[in-house]
């Protein structure tokens, strides 16, 4: 059985992760559309895939948050990535598998996965 005491260990690790990446102070944000439409389309597993993958890679400076209905429910699950420089990339029809690729290619290596974006879906 886990206990809250374990959190102290995890805290040390998390602090280490943040310290290593402190230069990138204004962190990137991953925002998942979590209204009824998003949840029904599978937004929660997508969000969990982001959290898990970011945890594995110790990317503690990237925040995963939620928002309400973005307005294009037919393209849910929708994920918006807000970068440090203020640009936004909107990914649509998301799946947990796509989330893993976005972490690797976009969030780690800075290459936007163009084929998953709203621009590609709405051509």
């Amino acid at each position: 059985m886990k206990s809250l005491a374990e959190l102290e260990q995890i805290r040390k690790k998390a602090l280490e992760d943040v310290r290593l990446r402190n230069s990138e102070k204004d962190s990137t944000r991953v925002v998942v559309g979590m209204a009824t439409c998003g949840i029904a389309a599978g937004a929660r597993p997508v969000m969990n895939a982001f959290i898990e993958e970011l945890g594995k890679r110790s990317l503690g400076n990237i925040k995963v948050t939620m928002t309400g209905c973005i307005g294009v429910c037919r393209l849910e699950p929708i994920v918006e990535v807000f970068e440090k420089n203020g640009t936004k990339v909107t990914y649509v029809n998301m799946t947990p598998e796509k989330a893993v690729r976005i972490v690797a290619e976009h969030l780690v290596n800075g290459r936007v996965c163009l084929d998953y974006t709203i621009g590609a879906a709405e051509k």
Binding site: K2, E6, L7, I10, R11, K13, A14, D17, V18, I51, E52, L54, G55, S58, L59, G60, I62, K63, V64, T65
Partner: peptide
């Protein structure tokens, strides 16, 4: 909101 903590 750190991923490791949320996962825990």
């Amino acid at each position: 909101s750190q991923p490791v903590i949320i996962a825990w």
